[in-house]
Nucleic acid binder design. Sequence first.
DNA 1: TCTAAAGGCTCTAGTCACTAGAGCATCAAG
DNA 2: CTTGATGCTCTAGTGACTAGAGCCTTTAGA
Lengths: 147, 147
Amino acid sequence: MFSIGKLAAATGVKVPTIRYYEQIGLLATPDRNSGNQRLYDDAARARLAFIRHARELGFPLDAIRELLGLSDDPARSCEQADAIAQRQLAQVEARITRLNALRAELERMVHQCAHGTIAECRVIEVLGNHALCAHEHAEPSLVQEEA
Amino acid sequence: MFSIGKLAAATGVKVPTIRYYEQIGLLATPDRNSGNQRLYDDAARARLAFIRHARELGFPLDAIRELLGLSDDPARSCEQADAIAQRQLAQVEARITRLNALRAELERMVHQCAHGTIAECRVIEVLGNHALCAHEHAEPSLVQEEA
DNA sequence: TCTAAAGGCTCTAGTCACTAGAGCATCAAG
DNA sequence: CTTGATGCTCTAGTGACTAGAGCCTTTAGA
């Protein structure tokens, strides 16, 4: 049995994130010691490692919740788990396609910049006039930033 | 002069999003008609088109704010605008690299699935055991989902 | 001219997956 | 026994919107 800090160190998941996972029901409420501090065992560690790995692969928490539910039932068909992974793969592929188009547009923009004044800047100009673009873009909602 | 609805239709930006941009100071507070409804002119339309296009290219609102500030000063050097675009390009490239690694991992996982039971499912197994992975992953925070 | 639907208004709260901070309690090492 | 690290709960903030409630104004047709 170990503390939340040890669990965090063992899995690479930050302490507040572990508490957050507990709060949203992704991790079971653990036992506490006499001083009300959380105590974890190896099963909890394995579950958290699973969550962390799935997050690294880009699975949203809802999908992870589903995968965890499935993994609790070793006898059932893995069809559903397979479908979730396929869906995730499709999304990753779609985002790669999308980002490649973005990269091309940004490269074009940056390479055309003659490093003069704002008035003649291609970066500003292209942003202001979509017609100067090589192709259409997707919805803004489909392009997201990282932390 | 046109209404917020016409502006939305003209730029492809949703009405609540326009009001949100006004709220956060990205768009100036427009004039109102006698019934307190917003009235926009072509300058506002051009500014919103700029914002929309930059969003499509993945620029965060803070960078867009900066670019808009720069574009208001046509005489200055475009060095800064160029730097912002380069930064954005670098981020897009980093994300592509990252997503390609994810795709490889997900493909490996999915292709190894024999469509049997959960107990023998490679998807569940690989997620639970990082050691089965072909390579390391980044922090979960570096992989984000789309809407 | 009347009416009804479409569009507009403000305000609050929700999304996702955390992260930060306040203010306090507990534990472990020296 | 002290002190610093670690733990606790709770609230609020992040980015870029989105949804909904409850109301008011405009516009097109009869």
